[in-house]
């Protein structure tokens, strides 16, 4: 079975029902994606399938074979290093223990792909599946707004440059 993770193809020979989470962590060795609850309740295992945030602890690998899988290790921009969300997370000093933050960033990333100017309610809605036990919610929200602004500015600059 072939899995496309962060634009690299990985061949895995496993029970097709195996949750994607454990393949990413144990077979592929990308440990930034975390195990939190195993029942899709906490969002620590969030990755993206074709740009949409999903819970990898509940997603069997057979449902991911023909899709692009993106993990926290795959969102940095090859040219400019860290993604705007990661930079904003540092700027706002968001993480405490940090365990849930890969999942938070992947959910936020998925939101900003679909909505470049999210309101507080949009953010609440998109992030409600991700638990942070350290209670960094207000900083996560600030981080998302900061990153959204940065991405909008970059997009404007690109349009101006290309125009």
């Amino acid at each position: 079975m072939k899995l496309n993770i962060n634009n690299t193809i990985h061949d895995v020979d496993l029970d097709p029902a195996t949750p994607l989470l454990w393949v990413i962590r144990e077979q592929v060795g990308l440990t930034g994606t975390k195990f939190g609850c195993g029942i899709g309740q906490c969002g620590a295992c969030t990755v993206q399938l074709d740009g949409l945030a999903i819970r990898s602890c509940l997603t069997p690998i057979q449902a991911a074979t023909d899709k692009e899988i993106t993990t926290i290790e795959g969102i940095s921009d090859q040219d400019s290093g860290l993604h705007a969300l990661q930079k904003a997370w540092i700027e706002e000093q968001v993480p405490q223990c940090g365990y849930c933050q890969s999942g938070q960033i992947l959910s936020a990333h998925s939101l900003l792909t679909q909505n470049t100017s999210p309101t507080d309610e949009d953010i609440d809605q998109a992030m409600s599946g991700n638990i942070c036990r350290c209670g960094t919610y207000s900083r996560i929200k600030s981080g998302i707004k900061l990153a959204a602004e940065e991405l909008r500015n970059t997009a404007t600059t690109k349009i101006l440059n290309n125009g």
């Binding site: 926290i72 933050q101 960033i105």
Partner: peptide, 18 residues
Amino acid sequence: PRFDIPSKVDGTANFGID
């Protein structure tokens, strides 16, 4: 800025489970 934060935004921080 805290020393531990950069590794907690790119998945490289090593927790016990990692």
